[in-house]
């Protein structure tokens, strides 16, 4: 099968010339492509570089005005601002861990019958579930506030995770349904023949296979709530010891004594710290994150 073709010297030279031209043209393309890529990377890295640089500038440098990109006098001590937020960081960790575990777990539980069973009212339940996506949070905001106050949750950290146990939102359930459909049904049918009930099939067969999408939703929940300030703003009231980082930082940022430009370096230092969590999570779980974006976006 591997017949080598006999090539005369003339033909060989001609082919070599064509190849060389092709290479030269390709090299040109490469340079152009990478030039554009470098511009893009510089553009997209700007907020990070700006933030990190500013967080290292000294206060006198900022007071002098004349904004510049690179710090002239390095001042690492700006990062001591993190100490002021330590209690808030612990509060936030509690909120994101509860939401990041139970939200995805209940999403998987609620998705299971939609993906695997035929039950009466399935179509209605599905349509009903998806219609809740349309409902703006603004419609629920005020009555939920009074509901929480009746349940005595206002000013308590529990108001931030009480909503984690109820399915994790229609879009997450939908995502898991789409994911579960890609798992072959033979697996659970085999278990059913062996006498497993539906709860066992979910717990021991389908749920472990959903690990990637579980991780995606968990990371999404952690990232989304890590710096959330809308719901803490509504429900945490004046209980300062319950504040999450997002809310504490918001009050710190808007209080008049801190807006002056010589505080910007410390604010930026806090921003750097706050950005680290999502950044690290993404870099560690890149594969799951991009995989999740694919399922979420493509099957819609």
């Amino acid at each position: 099968m591997t017949d080598e073709q006999i090539i005369t010297t003339g033909e060989a030279e001609f082919i070599a010339e064509i190849k060389k031209r092709k290479q030269r043209r390709q090299a040109g393309y490469y340079v152009a492509k990478y030039a554009v890529a470098v511009i893009l990377v510089v553009f997209f890295m700007f907020p990070y570089l700006f933030m990190v640089n500013k967080s290292l500038m000294s206060a006198s440098e900022l007071l002098a005005g004349d904004a510049h990109f690179f710090p002239h006098h390095f001042q690492i001590s700006n990062y001591s601002i993190v100490k002021e937020f330590w209690g808030n960081i612990l509060n936030t960790l509690q909120v994101v861990l509860i939401n990041g575990f139970f939200g995805p777990l209940t999403s998987c539980i609620c998705a299971f019958p939609f993906a695997r069973h035929n039950f009466k009212g399935k179509k209605f339940m599905f349509a009903f579930m998806m219609s809740t996506v349309l409902l703006p949070t603004a419609v629920l905001m005020i009555p939920q506030y009074f509901l929480y106050s009746q349940l005595n949750l206002i000013g308590k950290l529990s108001s931030q995770w009480i909503g984690a146990f109820w399915g994790g939102g229609a879009l997450n359930i939908f995502l898991v349904i789409q994911f579960m459909r890609t798992i072959p049904k033979d697996v659970d049918n085999a278990a059913r023949v062996d006498g497993a009930n539906e709860y066992q099939i979910f717990l021991f067969i389908v749920f472990p296979l959903c690990f990637n999408v579980f991780l995606y939703m968990a990371i999404g929940a952690v990232m989304g709530l890590w710096m959330d300030f809308q719901s803490p703003l509504l429900y945490l009231g004046n209980a300062q010891d319950q504040y999450t980082v997002g809310l504490a930082f918001y009050y710190y940022y808007t209080s008049s004594s801190n807006v002056s430009s010589n505080m910007q370096n410390r604010l930026m230092a806090m921003c750097v710290v706050m950005s680290l969590v999502p950044l690290l999570l993404f870099l560690v779980f890149q594969k799951q994150m991009i995989g999740g974006i694919k399922i979420g976006g493509l099957k819609g």
Partner: peptide
């Protein structure tokens, strides 16, 4: 059995969505 899986969603929606609506 199917609805028992949906219980978290149903309870949560009743309390935190339908009642507030």
């Amino acid at each position: 059995v199917s609805y028992s899986f949906l219980l978290p969603f149903i309870v949560g929606t009743l309390i935190f969505t339908l009642y507030p609506i």
